[in-house]
């Protein structure tokens, strides 16, 4: 009975929190509420017996997405924009925003569509909500039980944990494309040439020794935890994504605390690190094609070995990619000096 109450509170809180995130007056409150939303979602994954997703959500949600948003909001709000280059329309909006600025550093930006648009919008969206609600409540018993099929073929998949089997064997083509998305995101972000955009400066350089101490303490622990999650992926919740996300968050911490000067080491070192996971996965996928006739169809004998090799390289690439996405500045080409970069990629 009590667990029902736990679920009811959590399930009710999520939509209300989502509503508050979008309707709060200022950006900081919205982003911090969003971080709380991410945490509650991670708890709901735990309740829905999905520890793999809870791991990924905790690592990516708490570790990276929150930091990404805060970094961007810092970039947007922190520095006064020189009005010279703004067109007149935007200056008027900027003035309006300055006028109703409440307390320091809190950008107020309640710029919404006119009221009649909002009204006209609520009717179809409510109808959609009701239809989806009705559809969700009246789900029939599905004709096909993929859960049974997955567990029947589990021992042929080379790993013991269901989710890892689906990710890296049954539906490994999805995972291949998904790693492609990560690589694509880094290239797209770099093509924006954000190098000239100054990252939010460290607001305080005095209070850093404590942070440096913490990061130096956490670095070995996070690498060990990353390795543990990667190794455990075959038998219990864990795997390349969760390990990569934890190491990516480590990269974020290193960059934030200034131990690794952004942008990370320039030249091809970082690019190879980013592309190696995808290249290895694609290479092994096509190599086995020649042996067994279908793309990504691992020969039964060496399935486990191949999956572990792929997961190792995936972890390195995912970690580097998530850290590079946070830094958002492409490695400078002309900068000669070889930054000291004990990026975890080179170590693990």
């Amino acid at each position: 009975m009590l667990s029902l109450f736990f679920d009811a509170v959590l399930a009710l809180a999520l939509p209300l929190l989502a509503w508050r995130v979008l309707t709060t007056r200022d950006l900081y409150r919205a982003v911090i509420l969003f971080i709380a939303f991410g945490l509650l979602v991670a708890l709901s994954w735990a309740r829905l017996d999905a520890p793999d997703i809870a791991l990924a959500e905790a690592a990516i949600g708490a570790g990276l997405t929150g930091a990404l948003f805060l970094n961007t909001v810092g970039g947007l709000v922190g520095r006064k924009r020189s009005p010279s280059r703004e067109s007149d329309e935007s200056r008027e909006v900027a003035e309006r925003r300055e006028a109703i600025q409440s307390s320091p550093g809190e950008p107020v930006d309640e710029v919404m569509r006119p009221w009649w648009v909002r009204l006209a919008l609520t009717v179809p969206i409510l109808a959609l909500g009701l239809a989806l609600g009705w559809a969700v409540v009246s789900f029939p018993e599905p004709a096909i039980d993929l859960a049974q099929q997955a567990s029947d073929n589990l021992e042929a998949s080379g790993v013991d944990h269901g989710v890892t089997a689906v990710l890296l064997n049954f539906r490994s083509y999805d995972t291949l494309l998904e790693i492609g998305v990560l690589l694509l995101a880094v290239v797209a972000v770099w093509s924006l040439d954000l190098g000239r955009v100054r990252g939010g400066q460290a607001a305080l350089s005095k209070g850093l020794p404590v942070l440096h101490g913490l990061v130096r303490l956490l670095t070995p622990i996070m690498i060990i935890v990353g390795g543990y999650l990667l190794w455990a992926g075959a038998k219990q919740p864990g795997g390349a994504f969760q390990a990569g996300a934890v190491l990516g968050a480590l990269g974020v911490l290193l960059v934030l605390s200034g131990l690794v000067r952004p942008p990370l080491s320039d030249g091809s070192g970082l690019r190879i690190g980013l592309a190696v996971g995808f290249a290895v996965f694609l290479g092994i996928g096509t190599a086995v094609m020649l042996a067994t006739g279908e793309l990504l169809n691992y020969p039964p004998a060496s399935t486990y070995g191949l999956i572990i090799i792929i997961e190792l390289f995936l972890t390195v690439s995912i970690a580097l990619t998530l850290a590079a996405l946070f830094v958002t500045a492409p490695p400078r080409k002309e900068q000669g000096s070889k930054e000291h970069s004990e990026e975890k990629g080179e170590e693990s």
Binding site: I53, I60, V163, T175, V181, F241
Partner: peptide, 26 residues
């Protein structure tokens, strides 16, 4: 029996979502 296929879909979706978010923010 908890079905692992949607879990794999959600894991893939989370990674795709974080990539899209990073690009949109950039």
């Amino acid at each position: 029996l908890t079905d692992p296929v949607p879990h794999a879909m959600v894991l893939t979706g989370i990674v795709v979502a974080v990539s899209a978010t990073a690009f949109a923010l950039a």
